[in-house]
Design a protein around this nucleic acid. Structure first.
Ligand SMILES: [Mn+2]
Ligand SMILES: [Mn+2]
Ligand SMILES: [Zn+2]
Ligand SMILES: [Zn+2]
Lengths: 130, 130
DNA sequence: TATCAGTTTAGAATGATTCTAAACTATTGA
DNA sequence: TCAATAGTTTAGAATCATTCTAAACTGATA
């Protein structure tokens, strides 16, 4: 798609066929939470022949351009989030469940910050069971 | 210390000299956030000769007995928290900073839960910069 | 004190991620 | 058009926190 190539170029990324295929999947309109492994599986399902190294490189490139958010919620497995607005999550480690909370959550009652520190962002994770 | 041996026994843990030394350090009255590596370094500083495997085993044993909380905040490194009350954190990945928020935070404006799910706990992480 | 379940330990294994360095390709200026 | 080059892809090695293995050790019990 011409659109996706321009999208990549406008983010200082050469529109290689690998990046085009990955971007087409990730930015198809619906928000996604993917791990490198899950994305790689999906790309294999599509017979793209894209290597796992390229999946990692591309996710990292997109992240550095601000096209993805990076989530480190549980142990050892990084999620990349196509929803780059500030938002929160329902999360279940056991069920590999990750759902956006786009509502305006409000967190009140915070104590004063440590000296010489400023808040970067407030992250709310609603851990689910059952 | 007799107290610590009883404390361990009352939690179905044999008071070996390794566990006694680790418990003495962890439960000395001030709340701590330790990684296996940081705890191992501290124990080496004290010339205890406790192996890293035992540090992992003991942290895990204490966690299973509910004597520690487990925190997976950033990438790849697990923190164990001697504060077992429900609480939140100021956190800086870059500075390895982790400070308890014991105030009664309030989170309001949550949307309805996904079907057939219930909230286990709400975790608030205030990410700090600078 | 003998027995045995529980514990400790060194070292191997695991697994997500990063690194390396060689082959490949999109871009561009002549 | 196309050579030159900077950027990209890739297989496989390396990294590193953590877990596993299985053999040696020890606290509890009778
Ligand atoms: Mn890891
Ligand atoms: Mn790991
Ligand atoms: Zn999200
Ligand atoms: Zn804490």
């Amino acid at each position: 798609m011409k659109d996706i190539k321009d999208f990549l170029r406008s983010n200082s990324l050469r529109p290689t066929k690998q990046r085009v295929l990955i971007a087409e999947y990730l930015f198809d309109g619906e928000n996604k939470h993917v791990t490198a492994e899950k994305l790689s599986n999906e790309l294999n399902r599509r017979r793209t022949g894209i290597s796992l190294a390229t999946v990692y490189n591309t996710l990292h490139d997109f992240y550095e351009r601000g096209l993805l958010k990076k989530l480190s919620l549980g142990l050892d497995r990084v999620y990349f989030d196509t929803n780059t607005d500030h938002h929160h999550h329902f999360y279940s480690d056991k069920e590999q469940l990750l759902i956006d909370i786009n509502n305006k959550l409000k967190v009140s009652g915070l104590p004063k910050l440590p000296k010489n520190k400023k808040t970067n962002k407030i992250e709310v994770i609603v851990h689910l069971d059952n």
